[in-house]
């Protein structure tokens, strides 16, 4: 560890999640990963401080979900209490501007409501801070500059340098959140402050419905002849069974596999 490295103030923005199957309130997966990242940072840079921030209404269900984050080993959570259906962005931006941390970590998208993933961007725009999305790891923080690893698809990583203060958002590539323990969650405190809320009128006008299953795209084959169209349709319907090579030499087998690997472009 280098001497220049020193503790940082990290604020983690958390939301009330929603289980994809049962819809029960829970700690949101991405936000919990964000908190895990922050806790890892606390370990990596002694003297760091992690604070939790949530804006929203206080209710039995949401409190239980928020305590899910506290069960990961924090003593308190700042709750900006607002009425249901309010816009959380102004309240959060105001709170962060009043006592700016060096790093704000948030999940990429909420599991409830609009879930547009705009919040980190809106905060970054309001606060005028740089934003990095898809964070996988924080490598170092030195002299107000953080070296980060951003996740690219398929396990690839990109190294970025960002001047602090900054907002980073995490998605499924960040480290999996640790287990939430009942004891610490029960003991921890929710420090609630009431904040003025502006209702999100636009959202209220939209029609929300449970997601319909999206129609599977049919392979439309623009073919010159009926025969080609029929062949394409038949090939689609056939699906299922693959090609089985029996009684081939190892070379022939390897050749076939090699061809497939090349077609799929997984050989580099």
């Amino acid at each position: 560890m280098r001497p220049e490295q020193q503790g940082v103030e990290v604020a983690v923005l958390v939301s009330v999640g929603c289980h994809p199957i049962t819809g029960r309130a829970r700690r949101a997966d991405q936000d919990a990963r964000g908190l895990e990242l922050a806790l890892g940072l606390e370990r990596q840079l002694p003297g760091s401080r992690v604070s939790l921030l949530h804006a929203g209404p206080r209710g039995e269900e949401s409190e239980a979900a928020l305590r899910g984050y506290l069960g990961m080993g924090l003593e308190s959570l700042t709750l900006l209490e607002q009425a249901e259906g309010s816009d959380a962005i102004p309240a959060l931006a105001e709170h962060l501007a009043a006592a700016p941390p060096q790093l704000v970590i948030t999940g990429a998208r909420a599991e409830r409501g609009e879930g547009s993933g705009l919040l980190p961007y809106a905060l970054a725009e309001r606060l005028g801070w740089p934003l990095v999305n898809g964070l996988a790891a924080v490598e170092t923080i030195e002299n107000g500059v953080a070296t980060l690893l951003q996740a690219l698809p398929r396990g690839q990583r990109r190294r970025l340098k960002v001047r602090l203060p900054a907002i980073v958002s995490v998605d499924g590539a960040a480290p999996v959140a640790r287990q939430s323990a009942f004891g610490p969650a029960r003991r921890a405190e929710l420090e609630a402050t009431s904040v003025p809320a502006e209702p999100d009128r636009e959202l209220a006008e939209w029609q929300l419905a449970p997601a319909r299953k999206r129609p599977k795209r049919l392979k439309i084959v623009k073919a010159a002849s009926a025969r080609d169209r029929f062949k394409a349709a038949a090939a689609k319907a056939e699906g299922g069974g693959g090609q089985v090579l029996t009684d081939v030499t190892p070379e022939q087998g390897a050749e076939a596999i090699f061809k497939l690997l090349q077609e799929e472009g997984v050989l580099r």
């Binding site: 289980h19 199957i21 049962t22 029960r24 829970r26 069960g71 990961m72 080993g73 640790r178 287990q179 939430s180 323990a181 009942f182 004891g183 610490p184």
Partner: peptide, 21 residues
């Protein structure tokens, strides 16, 4: 489990599932 939050391997996942589903 209740204080350390340290159920090994699939333990945490199973407990989360039990809570949620």
């Amino acid at each position: 489990t209740l204080e350390h939050g340290n159920t090994p391997n699939k333990g945490a996942e199973v407990l989360d599932n039990l809570i949620a589903t």
